[in-house]
């Protein structure tokens, strides 16, 4: 028995070290799906809603607006599309594991990228609230000796966000890979007496991993997407308040 736990498959190597991997391709597929969904949902909007499509679209938009305004205040209403996008994207990326795709959120590169966006926003709003001098001075508190730790603490925010998402989703990938392998081994053990190719059929892989998938992909994926958005919102709202 030989189990390989690997990252995303590399499809193409471009110059300058650019890699087109399964992560990227899956992301593009999901982006396409979301774009088509948006276009379809808002195909024929009326002031008086007819049909369920518009109700769903309005429900989604309202939910996003409400989430942002209740956590950040009315001043950040422009953030609603970004938070909505982040949530939908990360949720569908995590759920793509259900379809047997490699979830893009199980790739540290992806989550690091998204966390960087959040980090840049946090820093931008902190500088906007306190000024550049105030922001830099914030590292010197309470005493200048602690400056390195403060810098470390500043960077730990995006890193912990990225690792939280990556850790939860990739744990699911690792464990389901291991379970699949173990079940294959078990079923081959159980079906040893059958002749030829028949003994190689992994019968036990049929239903058992679904339970794991429900926890790791559905529950964990949805929860982590929600938490990623929630943390983004809270950090930005806190940063914009100033000291």
């Amino acid at each position: 028995m030989n189990v390989e736990i690997t990252g995303a498959k590399i499809f193409l190597r471009l110059p300058f070290g650019i890699l087109i991997t399964e992560t990227q391709v899956n992301m593009w597929i999901i982006m396409l799906a979301i774009a088509i969904l948006c276009k379809w949902l808002t195909h024929n909007l009326k002031v008086k809603p007819e049909g369920k499509r518009q109700v769903v679209a309005e429900y989604l938009v309202n939910m996003s607006n409400k989430f942002v305004t209740s956590n950040m205040g009315d001043r950040f209403k422009n953030f609603s599309p970004f938070i909505g996008t982040l949530f939908a994207f990360s949720l569908l990326c995590s759920l793509s594991g259900l379809l047997g795709m490699y979830p893009p959120t199980a790739d540290l590169n992806t989550t690091i990228g998204w966390a960087t966006v959040t980090f840049v926003m946090i820093v931008y709003y902190k500088i906007k609230a306190n000024g550049l001098g105030g922001y830099l001075k914030g590292f010197m508190e309470p005493i200048p000796v602690l400056a390195p730790f403060n810098v470390l603490g500043e960077f730990s925010t995006p890193i912990s966000m990225a690792i939280r998402m990556f850790g939860n989703i990739s744990t699911g990938v690792v464990i389901s890979t291991l379970v699949y392998a173990a079940l294959a081994w078990l079923s081959s053990l159980a079906l040893q007496w059958l002749p030829g190719v028949l003994s190689g059929i992994p019968v036990l892989q049929l239903g058992v991993p679904a339970i794991l998938s429900i926890y790791f992909d559905l529950f964990s994926g949805a929860l982590q997407s929600f938490i990623f958005c929630m943390l983004t919102v809270l950090y930005i709202a806190q940063a914009s308040k100033g000291d």
């Binding site: 990739s170 744990t171 982590q224 938490i227 929630m230 943390l231």
Partner: peptide, 24 residues
């Protein structure tokens, strides 16, 4: 509670990352 749990999980995830680094 879910929010707090997610934040409290951070240290566990750090150790998970260390374990993953050690293995992979």
């Amino acid at each position: 509670m879910l929010m707090g749990c997610a934040v409290a999980e951070t240290t566990g995830l750090y150790s998970l990352i260390i374990a993953m680094l050690l293995i992979f």
